[in-house]
Write a protein that binds this DNA or RNA. Structure first.
Length: 656
RNA sequence: GCGCCCAUAGCUCAGUUGGAUAGAGCAACGGACUUCUAAUCCGUAGGUCGGAGGUUCGAAUCCUCCUGGGCGUGCCA
């Protein structure tokens, strides 16, 4: 399991004769993109040629004759402007894959220097139901945690829950005014989330009311701007694109403003016409400030509000935990925002004492050279902000774990916040800790807009998972019933398989996209169960288990015997080579914290297995020896798939 | 206005940090099932990598400008 490591080790000594810094040169040894160029290629001769003002091909030949690769490469060729194409020796490859096959667990060589990572992910607001927006942070953070720890790093998974913010003020206000005691006793979280939505709608109503005048004024203002721009276009010469552009922009802006006014009016009308909301909104005009007051009272230790918070919180957490249990997500610590409450004042005092703050409009601010706007750590009204909490969190984590790195798996819209946070942390307390925002894009609906329900709400996570499982069950059932030898699964088995496939599909769809880009959420695509989906990998695994069942193979016994893998057919060789590249995929994931390198790898592996499966019959192999070889190759493939999927948080099943 | 990000096949996306003739999967077309599970495999077709310059042996990738889009932008998180 160390092809690339081994190749680089062989090159290292020789390359030291050419350049003092060999790491970048060694990085230029990589798998070939095309089978015609061998299994691996070394591309360092070209840059060396430039640096040393010599012919790259000449350097390549020199390197090739100096590096001792007789045992691992069957062919070493200099090609094109100076590429070195390496073909791995079949015997060496066979030995390597047998080593892996003989080991009890699929492992990669642990990192030489284990680091301590704090990974901050998921972090939902506990008072609101989890929605589709939480899926990426949760799934990506979980996978990165699994991968880093698999590679030998020390990982602390921290769920930085939003358990102390304005949303609790909203619930408390809602509880005091609109609670249905019986409903709360019956299903507390359901009642609390009803109260949250209710309060949210009333706030929205009053915001809309107070926004009407402003929206009207904006429209008038922009109408004037459109007139002005239109005149400018008339006056300007036809080639002046600038004024045409201005007109277009002004027109766009007025259409936004009109749409905005329309949505305000709609909110107001629908609220007033609503059977529940209509009668009550009128008596809660001050709800906005009242909610802030309830929040402030909570923060200041008001007995009643703290008691309510303590009563609500366990229910909310239990509800979130239900989702984590379904998704097989776990954390080492769940220090929510409330945990840092007592540390916020001291953080601000410390910043002040170190002369890093300046007062501006009554707020305590940290001004940073790189940014126009400051980071506000204490509001005019004395309240703290999430920036304050985040600084306190960094401090706490450093004191507690002295991590080498903290990773924040949070969506890209908070990029600027983290830039400021990291900059502030750097001037506040010098530290070697690597602070990284693991940013990701938005989940879009099939219309290319952020994924919302028809009414404009975020899509609930629980319903989303239910839907995926339901669709998976359909496919499992249809497939089982159309098996040539008749259905073979009980209802319980079908349900379990659908559970693994449905949840796996959701996770895989997310992880297989480059995290930095937005992606379009589509049940159809992820459930198509063809192509690059979790099901394809799960299917490969199930087929292998089916071979073992059909042949009544005791695979553990076979592995313990003296049988070994021999690579005769091209499909066998190609599969074995890919199996041995797991560690390269893991390295890539860690390199830039992107799990999609692992999904790409697994897809490649599963494709090669499918080819092998078509071309090389296992149970009807030409001889007992070949059959045993292929059985072992199947076994090691299955174990690598299982390991890889496990690192993505996805389960396998024996039958599909 | 300023800042960050994006634009690759009809659609959804990769593209190993500057490497060889840009790849998958859907969708389309043609083949392979008395199956070690066809949820599969084999093949065909599909591209001005948004546009224009530049950097060099070599650019989807780096730089500049332009076009089109997304997001953020002083007391929410």
């Amino acid at each position: 399991m160390k092809i690339l490591t081994e190749l680089r080790a062989r090159f290292r000594e020789v390359l030291e004769n050419y350049d003092s810094d060999v790491e970048p040169l060694l990085d230029m040894i990589r798998p070939s993109q095309d089978a015609r160029f061998g299994d691996y290629q070394a591309n360092m001769a070209m840059p060396l040629g430039k640096k040393l003002s010599r012919q790259p091909r000449e350097i390549a030949s020199e390197i090739v004759s100096a590096v001792n690769m007789d045992d691992i490469c069957s062919q070493v060729e200099v090609a094109g402007p100076g590429f070195v194409n390496l073909t791995i020796n079949d015997q060496w490859l066979t030995d390597q894959v047998n080593d892996l096959s003989n080991s009890n667990e699929i492992q990669i060589d642990s990192v030489v220097q284990p680091k301590t990572f704090v990974i901050d992910y998921s972090s939902p607001n506990v008072a609101k139901p989890m929605h589709v927006g939480h899926i990426r942070s949760t799934v990506i953070g979980d996978s990165l945690s699994r991968v880093l720890s698999f590679a030998g790093h020390n990982v602390i998974r921290d769920n930085h829950l939003g358990d102390w913010g304005t949303q609790f003020g909203m619930i408390i206000y809602g509880y005091k005014h609109f609670a249905d005691e019986d409903a709360f006793k019956e299903k507390p979280v359901k009642e609390l989330s009803r109260l949250y939505r209710l309060v949210n709608q009333i706030i929205g109503y009053w915001n809309a009311k107070s926004g009407l005048d402003g929206a009207q004024a904006t429209i008038e203002q922009r109408a004037a701007a459109v007139e002005q721009a239109r005149d400018a276009v008339g006056a300007a010469d036809p080639d002046d694109k600038k004024s045409a552009k201005n007109l277009k922009r002004a027109e766009t802006q007025i259409s936004y403003a009109t749409a905005w006014l329309h949505s305000l009016t709609e909110t107001i009308e629908s609220t007033e016409g609503d059977a529940t909301l209509g009668p009550i909104v009128g008596s809660h005009e001050q709800i906005g400030t009242a909610v802030l007051t309830e929040t402030a009272k909570l923060h200041n230790g008001d007995e009643e509000n703290v008691a309510l918070w303590e009563e609500f919180l366990p229910h909310c957490r239990a509800d979130i935990q239900k989702i984590y249990d379904r998704l097989d997500i776990r954390f080492d610590v769940e220090y929510g925002e409330s945990f840092y409450h007592d540390r916020l004042g001291p953080v601000v005092s410390d910043l002040e004492a170190k002369g890093l703050t300046r007062e501006s409009d009554g707020a305590v601010c940290v001004f940073l050279d790189e940014f126009e706007t400051p980071m506000i750590v204490r509001k005019r009204d004395g309240a703290f902000l999430y920036a304050t909490t985040d600084l306190a969190t960094i401090q706490y984590r450093q004191e507690t774990w002295s991590p080498d790195a903290m990773l924040y798996v949070v969506d890209h819209r908070q990029g600027e916040h983290f830039q400021k946070l990291f900059a502030a942390a750097a001037i506040w307390q010098a530290s070697e800790t690597e602070l990284q925002h693991i940013s990701f894009g938005t989940v879009l609906g099939e219309d290319g807009r952020p994924f919302k329900t028809r009414s404009g709400d975020a899509v609930g996570l629980e319903g989303l998972l239910d839907e995926a499982v339901a669709r998976a069950l359909d496919v499992v059932t249809t497939n089982d019933e159309s098996k040539p030898n008749g259905a073979e699964l009980t209802n319980e088995q079908r349900a379990h398989i659908a559970d693994c496939i449905g949840h796996g599909a959701i996770k895989y769809a997310d992880l297989s996209h480059n995290r930095t880009s937005d992606y379009v959420f589509s049940y159809e695509k992820m459930m198509a169960l063809e192509g690059n989906t979790a099901a394809y990998m799960q299917y490969s695994y199930a087929r292998i288990q089916s071979i073992f069942r059909r042949g009544e193979i005791d695979i553990d016994g076979l592995r313990a015997s003296f049988s070994s893998i021999a690579l005769e057919q091209p499909a066998e060789r190609s599969l074995a080579l890919t199996i041995l590249q797991l560690s390269e995929a893991i390295d890539q994931v860690i390199e830039d914290y992107r799990p999609n390198h692992l999904t790409n790898y697994l897809f490649d592996l599963a494709k090669r297995f499918s080819s092998f499966f078509e071309q090389c019959h296992v149970l009807r192999a030409e001889s007992e020896t070949i059959m045993q070889s292929r059985l072992l190759l199947c076994d090691v493939t299955a174990r690598v798939i299982r390991t890889g999927l496990d690192l993505l948080g996805i389960r396998v099943v024996d039958k599909m």
